[in-house]
């Protein structure tokens, strides 16, 4: 009985994960080698992979996910700056903190719908810019294929920076304050204290957040893109990303085999990244 007890405790977990992931992951690999119509089809070897890897649209989607990675330094920089400012604990800082975390509380689809109105060509943002005589900055934020992905990126930074700020602030508040105090007494200014004393101690959490950001940009931007891109990664194919590519292949093109092949590739890449995350976390723990 005692020997069986541990298994009793983990049995629900094994059942749950087994039901959802068990056969599904296996079938995902299986489907990627089949020409699926409906729920099954003939084995076609690597053909799905060849088709996908030879399709410009696939590479364009991958490129867009990679382009989103460019936002990470900005995201981290902004979060860090805000966290350091909050850490000063000036009058009313808890109110600022509450407001600055608000973006993370709003659901992505809701905020994307709101932003989509704000960034219309003749919408409020451009009206303000034109009123300020900044007409050259009144771009077609969501209508131009050259700009739309940058607008998406802005929205992602806007929301994810809220999480970054809170994570960084939590780390700051857990630090031993005597070092900072000593530096202050020796006349180090705010910037020097931040750069030489605080930030070095935050390496672990910054690395951790970076990896989370990479995973987000590669495989968790569906809701942003779906709404800002008019449901199909537009204008043109300018906001098409891997998740949307899989979604389209599955639901709009009746090509589950193709969707599975791309899923397998995304899975393998994500597995590599999560491994990286743990290497980082372990280092942070040490």
């Amino acid at each position: 009985m005692t020997r069986l007890k541990p298994y009793l405790y983990v049995a629900p977990l094994v059942l749950l994960l087994g039901f959802v992931f068990g056969t599904s992951l296996v079938r995902m690999f299986e489907f990627s080698f089949k020409m699926i119509r409906g729920v099954d089809g003939p084995w076609i070897g690597w053909r799905n992979y060849r088709l996908v890897l030879n399709q410009p649209l696939f590479w364009e989607s991958v490129g867009h996910n990679l382009q989103l990675l460019l936002a990470i330094p900005i995201l981290i920089g902004l979060s860090l700056l805000t966290a350091l400012l909050l850490y000063e604990r000036l009058r009313g800082w808890t109110l600022w903190r509450a407001v600055l975390f608000l973006p993370y509380v709003l659901a992505i689809p809701i905020i994307a719908v709101v932003m989509k109105q704000m960034f219309q060509f003749n919408g409020p943002v451009n009206e303000v810019l034109r009123w300020l005589s900044l007409d050259f900055m009144a771009l077609d934020w969501i209508g131009s294929p050259d700009i739309a992905l940058w607008t998406v990126m802005g929205l992602i930074v806007w929301r994810e920076a809220a999480l970054g700020t809170i994570l960084f602030l939590a780390r700051l508040l857990s630090l031993d304050e005597s070092l900072v105090e000593a530096a202050r007494i020796e006349g180090a200014n705010w910037w020097q204290r931040a750069w030489h004393i605080l930030i070095p101690q935050m390496r672990g959490v910054i690395e951790f957040f970076s990896v989370i950001c990479v995973i987000t940009m590669l495989s968790a931007v569906f809701a942003y893109v779906y709404i800002l891109g008019g449901g199909r990664g537009g204008p043109g194919t300018s906001t098409m990303v891997i998740e949307l590519y899989i979604y389209n292949a599955l639901t709009r093109q009746s090509l589950p085999g193709i969707a599975a092949a791309v899923s397998v590739m995304l899975f393998v890449v994500s597995l590599g990244l999560i491994y990286l995350l743990f290497v980082v976390r372990r280092r942070q723990d040490d």
Partner: peptide, 27 residues
């Protein structure tokens, strides 16, 4: 092994599960 498996499953983007689960759920 169980812990490692759990950790690995954290790497699965939800969109990846959609295809096989949709077929399974249909059946």
């Amino acid at each position: 092994t169980l812990l490692a498996l759990c950790t690995a499953l954290m790497a699965v983007p939800p969109v990846v599960m959609v295809v096989p689960l949709f077929v399974l759920y249909t059946q």
